[in-house]
Write a protein that binds this DNA or RNA. Structure first.
Length: 571
DNA sequence: GCCGTTTTCGGCCCGACTGTTTTCAGTCG
């Protein structure tokens, strides 16, 4: 049973307990356990209760519950709860403005069983008479139902960046705004974001708030006060504003960057030292002892500054305490891009244009990696065309002064794990990427064998976008990451963190697990046009979330050192 | 339900905004 399913059941328990008005700390224990299991790189179902018990926030009881789910596929507690609390109430919690109390009221007094039922009741004006409701809340629910019509949608980080950067520019234009930046999951570099958190340094709270809600793209003002405001943009994206004075800006930036779990853990440390940490600063009694800089918060609990990408309560606090934080790779470390396409297959710009654009970015080298014949739809190259392309690459290199172009290929891995190009041609290339483009739904064992066979092929250098997932669209291949990464490390094969905003594949957790197993990572854009070469930043951020240091990433190396990694060091 | 350099019991992060309420509960982040 996948971790995601165990996590889903635990989260459902938490929600049902919440609806029963159970002890909030008991509720939190279940939702915390759900998060811990979800983020575990190994399969929780295969762990003994003793091993489960070692995980943070998992005690005797939860270890037993998880083992029960793994063994039986369900949970007695959950079945019992379902008898007491109608499932419909859980669905109602998804509507902003409806929490456990109101959800319970809706189900118990009006017998609402679905979102459609909620919409009918709201439109016929039955809600406003209920205790704890009112005309304003009824109206809010009607408007939220019109917007959402279902579950919360997260948008790609690169998309959110476009909205966020435009809004930042607008806010910075207001006199009295000294700083403005995006915090929240955007700053942590998460691949998708649910909303934007905009932090502004200014002593003029009300004026900042006023300007914010007048942003031309605002469709609805959800809340407005002197220190906080929330709006929904025309696109549906929610943006939360926080205004802070200079002496609190660092503490506020820290606070609103999150994650929630990370913040709670750090605040607890502060509490143990007799300190109170909130968005306004660090306090000893009533006296502020810091808050101007983000570092003030870390100083207060005796930790070095932790990069936002690591703030997920996944062991970064312990690592920081022991001085074992990785020095994360940075965009400026990147010396080249190891996957891109040209007009020879499905790219939109020529070989020369791609090289020219890479040179403008200051790269030392790039790899041209067009597709192989099996992908007919993208005009994949056969042996003859690869040999011709090689000659053009050689001529191009003779002309270029600062950039070296490696002749490569992105070779399709067939269903049986064999490669879609003959060995002789593969050996003639400077760099060989392999990737899945079909049969993503093979059973796990078969999928694992398929990729392992490709990794063992002597010509292979990199497994590109290893799972083939498309965020929000396609789950991607399921394989045993531990075995694949272990084999990759053994055979000197790299795994890619693909920088396309919809791929970002490997994901953060897999990237970290692979690095821990000794794998070298390649961060590549898979650009299909010269503009897409700029996607590198998203890939770097994803690798940073995967705890990648500069040394873990192949294409931070100078060309000479990179070449030693290729063809398994045989050249 | 978890957890321990105050604790095996008694705590558990913290504050803003809204609307309903008659001084504060509910919700959110």
């Amino acid at each position: 049973m996948p971790n995601a399913e165990i996590a889903r059941l635990l989260r459902e328990v938490a929600e049902l307990l919440e609806l029963e008005s159970a002890n909030t700390f008991r509720v939190r224990a279940y939702s915390n356990a759900a998060r811990v299991i979800e983020e575990l790189p190994e399969a929780a179902a295969t762990l003994s209760p003793e091993r489960l018990h070692e995980l943070p926030g998992i005690g005797d009881d939860l270890a037993g519950k998880i083992a029960e789910i793994a063994a039986t596929g369900s949970l007695k507690l959950l079945r019992d709860l379902h008898r007491e609390v109608p499932h419909a109430a859980v669905e109602l919690l998804r509507v902003p403005g409806i929490g456990p109390k109101r959800a319970r009221t809706l189900v118990d007094t009006l017998g609402i069983r679905s979102m459609a039922g909620l919409a009918r009741a709201a439109k016929s004006g039955k809600l406003k008479a209920l205790p704890g409701f009112g005309a304003a809340i009824e109206k809010k629910i009607i408007s939220e139902l019109a917007v959402h019509s279902g579950e919360e949608k997260r948008i790609l980080r690169a998309t959110a960046a476009q909205y966020g950067e435009a809004l930042l520019e607008y806010m910075r234009a207001l006199p009295g705004v000294r700083r403005a930046e995006l915090a929240g999951s955007f700053r942590r570099g998460r691949e998708t974001v649910g909303d934007l958190d905009l932090l502004v340094e200014s002593s003029l709270g009300v004026e900042v708030s006023e300007r914010f809600v007048k942003y031309p793209e605002v469709r609805a003002v959800l809340a407005k006060g002197p220190t906080r405001a929330s709006v929904r943009l025309a696109s549906g994206l929610q943006v939360d504003l926080r205004v802070l004075p200079a002496e609190s800006y660092g503490a506020g930036l820290y606070y609103f960057t999150g994650s929630k779990a990370h913040n709670i853990a750090v605040r607890k440390m502060g509490q143990q030292r007799g300190l109170k940490i909130n968005e306004y600063g660090v306090f000893k009694g009533k006296r502020s002892i810091g808050g101007r800089r983000e570092q003030d918060v870390f100083d207060a609990v005796g930790l070095p500054w932790i990069p936002p990408e690591l703030r997920e309560d996944r062991g970064e606090i312990e690592a920081a305490g022991r001085g074992k934080l990785p020095k994360l790779v940075e965009y400026g470390d990147m010396r080249g891009d190891l996957q891109m396409h040209s007009t020879d297959s499905d790219g939109r710009d020529s070989l020369d244009a791609m090289a020219e654009a890479a040179q403008e970015l200051g790269y030392e080298y790039i790899a041209i990696t067009d597709h192989t014949p099996m992908l007919r739809i993208v005009n994949g190259l056969d042996r003859a065309r690869f040999l011709l392309q090689r000659k053009r690459v050689d001529r191009l290199n003779a002309r270029l002064r600062k950039l070296t172009v490696l002749a490569g290929a992105e070779v399709d891995i067939r269903a049986d794990g064999s490669l879609d190009l003959d060995d002789e041609t593969l050996e003639s290339l400077d760099i060989v990427l392999v990737s899945l483009h079909s049969k993503f739904d093979l059973p796990k064992a078969g999928q694992t064998e398929r990729i392992l066979r490709a990794i063992r092929h002597p010509a292979v250098d990199i497994v590109a976008h290893p799972t083939g997932r498309l965020i929000g669209q396609r789950r991607g291949a399921g394989f045993d990451l531990e075995r694949v990464a272990g084999a990759a490390a053994d055979h000197g094969v790299m795994l890619e963190v693909n920088a396309q905003p919809t791929r970002l594949d490997l994901d953060d957790i897999s990237c970290r697990a692979a690095i821990a197993l000794g794998v070298t990572i390649a961060i590549s854009t898979d650009a299909h046009s010269r503009d897409e070469l700029r996607n590198m930043r998203w890939g770097v951020d994803q690798a940073r979330r995967g705890w990648a240091a500069k040394g873990d990433v192949a294409n931070t190396r100078p060309l000479k050192a990179l070449l030693k990694l290729l063809h398994k060091g045989r050249r």
